[in-house]
Simulated scan of single mutants.
Amino acid sequence: MEQAAMAMGDVSKKASTRNLAVERKNLLTVCRFSVKTLLEKYTAEPIDDSSEEFVNFAAILEHILSHRFKGSSSWFDGQRSYWDYIRLACAKIPNSCISSIESMENISTSRAKGRAWMRVALMEKRLSEYIATALRDSRTTKRFYAEGAIMLREEATVLTGMLIGLGAIDFSFCLKGEALDGKSPAVIDYTPYLKFTQSYDYLSDDDDQQSVDSSASDDSVPEHPYIPLVTDEESWSTKCRKMEQRFKIVNAQKGYLEELVRLRESQLKNTETENKRLKARLEELQTQSQQEKRELEAIVLELQEQLTSLIPCDSNHLAKNLSIPLINQWPTLEPFDSQEDVKLFRRFATGSMATLSHCCNYFCSCNNRYVAEPNNIPVCA
């Protein structure tokens, strides 16, 4: 029974791991398709909430940011969303929109503030920067997301790369109305991507249907229902539409690459500035260490002069023999041995009194002073 239970547990764990992997793959795939669709549909006019492609993209991104989100840890925190994570992880970004969104009066719920932040970041063309900065704060990310979340995986860096291309699109939103209603959930529409192909040489629905009908009448089946074969009878208007569509795609890709180059140049500039700052700091520390070394040498010389003045001998001769010792070259002091010192003291204390008397007579005769004390112990006065 125990082995069967363990086997069932392993199967359940593998199934859970697979489900999380499939969820991440699905969300990132539809996000990539959604970004491509926005780049294809973009014209000179800014994109707003009336665009169905943007509404779907916003729903996909909200699902990605909410994937495996831990939510509120206690009743006091209330209903939390990915906005609480963005608010903390991106608080140090200079000139960010975090504080302005936090102080908006017409938006009260956390989910609504997250949707407002998403739109403002797109208008600022900094959505990728916000998410990349939040991902660098790994401690806060682990605090808000459970294991297996997209934001904790390497796929999150792929997400930031996708969002860089949106900097080539102009967005215009009104931060009021039903679009920012935090009560309604975001629903993803997968149907536009079920017919998605990697080739862009497809025609409109009407031309596609005509081509399919004509090919069916000739008992010929095209290779793909959405990529009809090009024939010599194709009209010039169709060719112009295809060329225009190709031009829009290439133009969008050009804008994406330019935005990517600008981002890399900005990162390189920041790195060079940081490198210069570190070099200046290193030079400052080296100068400070040299100054401290000179001060310590001056202190050693001063102490040497004081030492020579305290010793009653020829200072010039001592100065010649004394030299500034290097570090760790001072003589080491022997440890104090109390028993040996006591024995030495007793040996000298029990010595001959005559020797002591002789010494006292010698020193006192130098000063012509001699005093006899009781017990025949001479004392110098």
Rank of each mutant, 00 (worst) to 15 (best):
D219N: 11
V221H: 04
Y226Q: 13
Y226E: 12
E234T: 14
E234Y: 04
E234Q: 14
S235P: 00
S235T: 02
K239Y: 15
C240T: 06
C240G: 01
K242S: 01
K248Y: 03
A252R: 10
K254V: 13
L263E: 03
E265Q: 07
Q267E: 13
Q267L: 06
E274N: 09
E274K: 03
E274H: 05
K276T: 05
K279C: 05
R281C: 10
L282N: 03
E284Y: 03
Q286I: 01
T287V: 09
Q288A: 02
Q288W: 04
S289F: 03
Q290K: 10
Q291T: 10
R294K: 09
R294T: 10
E295R: 08
A298E: 07
V300G: 01
S309R: 13
S309N: 12
L310D: 01
L310H: 02
I311K: 13
C313T: 10
A319C: 07
I327C: 05
N328G: 05
Q329N: 05
E334M: 09
F336I: 11
D337Y: 13
Q339D: 15
V342W: 12
K343G: 08
L344H: 02
F345T: 00
R346K: 06
F348V: 15
F348W: 09
S352E: 02
S352D: 02
L356F: 06
L356W: 11
L356V: 05
S357Y: 02
C360R: 13
N361W: 04
S365C: 08
S365P: 01
